[in-house]
Amino acid sequence: MARSTPGVTRQRLIDEAVRLFSTQGYAATSVADIQAACGLTTGSGALYKHFPSKQALLEEAVRRNLETIADRAATATTPAEQPGGEELRVTLERMARVVWEVIEADRALIRIMLREFDGFPELFGHMWQGVLAGVYAQGAAWIREQQELGRVEVDDPEATATVLLSSLTYYPLLRLMIGRTPGDLDAERFLATWVDQAVAALKPRP
């Protein structure tokens, strides 16, 4: 077997550990399982050359996850500039799809968090904040900006952003948890109605 570089082996360990923790659970996944999934000899102790424990590996996976989420979430509530500007409805739909893409891209770690939260409340509490709290703050900031520009009328931007984003994120999270969607609606039908409700809540000015 060809020898992998240390960096590649470390990332491969993280990727395979996340996949195994997500599919069969943290407790049920052994260090030997992770090493075997990476094509390493199960009794070699190769994992310990990179991580002091299985938990340390999980913590590193969450840390890297938060870094990538921070980059992606920054675009979730920042509409792309287009000639002539975007209408509010088009902007909201685009933003909603980006939020869903952020959650979908991190579905394995989110599934681990939902399943293993009781065992690692502080670790996954930080992850939850990284996944959603930043998006809520950016959503509120965007609504305030639109209000200052005279485009919408909103009494409480923070609460409005929280209500809109909570309903939006509940759809993919419920699908991750139980494989069902709210009201058993398909994604496009849910999204179209969510945009309608978001426009009504923001009360755009003529």
Rank of each mutant, 00 (worst) to 15 (best):
D106K: 09
I110L: 15
M113D: 04
V152G: 03
L164H: 04
Q82T: 03
T91G: 03
V152M: 00
E116S: 14
R94H: 12
R151Y: 07
D156F: 11
D156M: 09
I112S: 15
L132R: 03
E116P: 07
E145K: 10
F120W: 01
E153M: 14
P83R: 07
R107H: 15
V154F: 11
P121R: 03
V154C: 02
S167C: 14
P83S: 08
V99W: 02
A159G: 11
D118K: 02
T91I: 03
A108S: 15
Q146F: 12
R97P: 05
M127Q: 09
E158W: 09
T162E: 15
D118Q: 02
P83F: 09
A140I: 02
V135I: 10
G84D: 07
E153N: 06
L165Q: 09
G130W: 00
E145A: 14
V131A: 09
E153L: 10
V98C: 10
V99S: 10
L149G: 02
T160A: 12
A159C: 13
M95Y: 04
V90H: 00
D155I: 12
E148P: 07
F117C: 05
I143G: 01
F124I: 02
A108H: 15
I112R: 14
T160Y: 05
D155W: 08
R151G: 13
A133D: 11
G85K: 11
